[in-house]
Amino acid sequence: MPFSHLKPKINTILANNHNGSDERLKEVCELLQTSIAHYDWVGFYFANEAEKTLHLKAFAGEPTDHTTIPFGRGICGQVAVSNKNFVVPDVKAQDNYIACSITVKSEIVIPLFKDGKNIGQIDIDSHVEDPFSEEDERFLEWVNEEVAKIL
């Protein structure tokens, strides 16, 4: 899937200084969730280093009970520790997975770095098994680089 058509839209959202960063993050989530067929839930979690927890700041899709995730727990918690992308083609195959919904079949989590430090992540759930490609990874890394500029 070519993501190039979304980049100018994301840049426009992030450049809108009339909205606070939380509102801009929510708009990015909504754009991704409504524009990419296999992105059924999109959210940004941010780290609280002192508590070793992640906190949901903005999302688009079904509401979730998982607004706080301990480091190391689930896919998001593992990325908080590893600082590496985590693509899960089939969530049923993961031992350390936190089920948000029975409809979720796959997940991708990309860490968000600011000044070289992992401060959070973008998390995407899909109702399709194994939909995420290397192109998704590169695009989401770019999204996080752009988001980091407004934080």
Rank of each mutant, 00 (worst) to 15 (best):
P2S: 15
P2H: 15
S4L: 09
S4C: 00
L6K: 10
P8R: 12
K9V: 01
N11K: 13
T12D: 11
T12E: 15
T12I: 02
L14W: 06
N17K: 15
H18Q: 15
H18T: 15
G20K: 05
S21K: 13
D22F: 08
D22H: 03
L25Q: 09
L25C: 00
L25T: 06
K26M: 07
K26Y: 13
E27C: 02
E27Q: 14
V28Y: 05
L31N: 09
Q33C: 11
Q33Y: 04
T34V: 10
Y39L: 02
Y39F: 13
Y39A: 06
Y39C: 06
W41E: 06
W41H: 12
F44P: 08
F44N: 06
Y45C: 07
Y45H: 09
N48E: 14
N48H: 01
E49H: 03
E49Q: 05
A50L: 12
E51N: 04
E51I: 01
K52P: 03
L54P: 02
H55A: 06
A58N: 03
A58D: 04
A58I: 01
F59P: 00
E62H: 04
E62S: 13
H66L: 04
T68L: 05
T68C: 10
T68M: 10
F71S: 02
G72W: 08
R73M: 09
G74W: 08
G74T: 12
G74F: 08
I75L: 02
C76F: 00
G77W: 08
V79H: 13
V79P: 11
V81G: 03
V81F: 12
N83F: 00
K84W: 01
K84H: 10
K84T: 14
N85R: 07
F86L: 15
V87Q: 08
V88W: 04
V88K: 08
D90I: 07
V91F: 09
K92M: 15
K92P: 00
D95Q: 14
Y97A: 04
T103R: 14
K105E: 15
E107M: 05
I108W: 03
V109N: 10
I110Y: 09
F113R: 14
F113T: 12
K114Y: 14
K114S: 12
K117N: 07
I119D: 13
G120D: 14
Q121T: 11
Q121F: 10
Q121K: 05
I122E: 06
I122A: 06
I122M: 09
I122L: 08
D123K: 07
I124V: 15
D125Q: 13
S126R: 03
S126Y: 01
S126N: 10
V128M: 08
E129Q: 11
D130H: 07
D130Q: 04
P131L: 11
S133R: 15
E134Y: 04
E134P: 00
R138D: 14
R138Y: 04
F139D: 02
L140I: 05
L140N: 12
W142V: 06
V143C: 14
V143P: 01
N144E: 05
N144Q: 12
E145C: 03
E146R: 14
V147K: 07
A148N: 04
K149P: 05
K149S: 12
